[in-house]
Design a protein around this nucleic acid. Structure first.
Lengths: 347, 347
DNA sequence: TCCTGCGCTTGAAGCGCTTCAAATTCACAC
DNA sequence: GTGTGAATTTGAAGCGCTTCAAGCGCAGGA
């Protein structure tokens, strides 16, 4: 067609010119400050904007305002597979809920670069107003990064000492494990094993510690040989359980550091023809959706992941708004979910 | 402390000044065009940048370059709960994998605003270089939006007619359902029901159509009373199966439009004391992680979600790079996963 | 000595927007 | 007719960066 040219995206300047007003006037009106202008001017600008299909360029706006209305969700390389990471997706649900309602968006930053210096430049590049560190691992360069930035920041799923100056939000691992162990003891179990999570996660360490402490509190000896495993995944639970079942002496119950481990453990039992809970009782942690659907349904502790995400989002917004960092730890306690994977020992 | 003041983030201008060079020189060097300058200049600028902890402001860079290295993932309000949306998380995994490797990040845009005009301004606000529409629903304002923008765009999880001018990537629903139905027929089933997905999803419609067509192709009558349901969730499958089981005559097998429906259906059977697969066979679609873990393990069709996400990412990057839109449909076929939820009918 | 060409550097323009001091207009009282 | 203050509007500065025409210094050739 004659005269057609690549229609460039209309800018504020164009709208202003077409409407016969200055750029400042157009800016005011199109960003909602209509009370500064006469109804006629407002209407003129608005109608031109509509006709031209004007959409404000948020990048330009962000450059001036120095804020982007975007929150970065920083994921360790090990976590970037969402489908394997129920925790991450649950937290994101909570985040989306709070932040979305406040007009914030999420930017997923999956780290590939692990050199602390470039890592830090990559994250704090002006495109986010705050960051959620999703389950940072012990020793992660992420933690070091924080020393160099003033970006508001919340840690979710890991709990670090105050000295690191983070605000940490997580489930109360110690409390949850205590619930589970006490339940087992109450059901008559005294021979209890534990399948651990990875030793780079603070929650895994806390869960193991809580396991030991609770047994000790009840005067039950801790059998080191029955403490196995080093992964939060099903495969890890499967292998650890296999190893456990090969020992000359077996516990009557096994506490798993999370549900996936428990699932793997149950699989290992099934494979060996060992029935759960008749021959061995198993408990989990998290209460993931599958937990109630497997056979037998898993006794576990609910992990209020969604609330955690929600609270983390709120805490982050608070930091952003007040402009001052927040420190400390906030733990969410879960309740025991009794299902059928634990047998009551009589006699 | 005396003399301390809020350390502002160093800018290019500051680095340039400290290094005694012009802003242009500093820009060149810090964005990698070191070959334009003498090694001494390069080193001087680099060392000042390092000392000052300079991090380029990507917002400013984006304003000039008109590109942000960010891809928007647009989610319908109905989909924003990741934990209920295995499809979405799987696709995101694939996206993160391709895009992350190419230096792109994901921005999650969860729609709350459904007025087409503002919706459109919200998405195409200059902060993304392209968009992935995650399972847009039939009749969604998202589709209309596309008419007004030149933003590169890929639809995932829904297949729309060419006329809408999208490039659509999805699993091959028709092929998958055909596999499942043929397997049932091969196992001797002739009385087959179908539990549908929601009628706002193109895949649900295709699956139902494929179900009907396959039966017809084998000369098996389609019993309308046995076609029930309208949701992809477990609860929907549960309810639909309950309704089905109340009918005077029951099918010997039920094809479910996805795995979650099948899980709900199995739950309904269990509750009524109807054993699967002895009394009724059930099949799913997707092969979600739980599918192999429930009792009985579910016969289903693998849905290559990760590949879909991966390919969608690649297609989007291609559009961005070539600067021209891509049209058409790309379907990924899945294979039949035979497990134990289907019984072979003899005689 | 002057000119040419090359390598390196400079500095201003501009990306699209917000902000704000200053200018303009207008109604109304004196 | 003049002055005043309030209501509107203007236009330039600037956010931090990239880009690019122009400038500079210098070596080599005429």
């Amino acid at each position: 067609m004659v005269g057609e040219h690549r229609r460039a995206r209309p800018t504020l300047a164009l709208v202003a010119k077409e409407a016969g007003v200055s750029i400042g006037t157009a800016s005011n009106i199109l960003s909602g400050k209509t009370e500064l202008h006469t109804p006629e001017t407002v209407e003129a600008v608005l109608s031109v904007a509509r006709r031209l299909g004007y959409r404000p360029n948020r990048i330009a706006r962000s450059l001036v305002a120095r804020q982007t209305h975007t929150i970065g969700v920083i994921m360790e390389p090990a976590h970037t597979v969402f489908t394997r990471n129920i925790y991450a997706t649950g937290v994101m649900d909570g985040l989306v809920e709070v932040l979305g309602a406040q007009g914030y968006h999420l930017k997923i930053i999956s780290l590939t670069e692990l050199d602390p210096r470039t890592l830090w430049a990559q994250i704090d590049d002006g495109t986010i107003d705050g960051a959620v560190l999703l389950v940072p691992l012990i020793g992660s360069p992420l933690l070091e990064w924080h020393q160099h930035t003033v970006l508001p920041c919340v840690v979710v799923g890991s709990v670090f000492p105050e000295s690191l100056e983070f605000y940490c939000v997580d489930s109360d691992s110690r409390h949850g494990i205590r619930l589970v162990v006490e339940w087992l003891i109450q059901q008559g179990h005294r021979q209890i094993g534990f399948l651990r999570g990875p030793d780079v996660q603070t929650s895994a360490i806390e869960r193991e510690e809580a396991f030991r402490e609770t047994l000790q509190a009840y005067g039950i000896p801790v059998r080191e040989a029955w403490i196995l495993g080093h992964s939060y995944h099903r495969e890890g639970g499967y292998e650890a359980m296999h190893a456990l079942l090969q020992l000359p002496e077996r516990p009557t119950a096994v506490v798993c550091a999370n549900d996936l481990i428990a699932l793997g453990a149950m699989e290992a039992c099934r494979e060996r023809g060992i029935s759960v809970p008749q021959e061995i009782s198993i408990t989990g942690f998290d209460d993931i959706p599958i937990a109630g659907l497997v056979d037998p349904p898993l006794t576990t502790v609910r992990n209020p992941i969604h609330e955690i995400g929600f609270h983390a989002g709120e805490a982050l917004l608070e930091q952003i708004r007040r402009g001052e960092p927040k420190r400390g730890v906030r733990l969410f306690a879960g309740e025991l979910i009794v299902r059928a994977s634990v047998r009551r020992l009589t006699g």
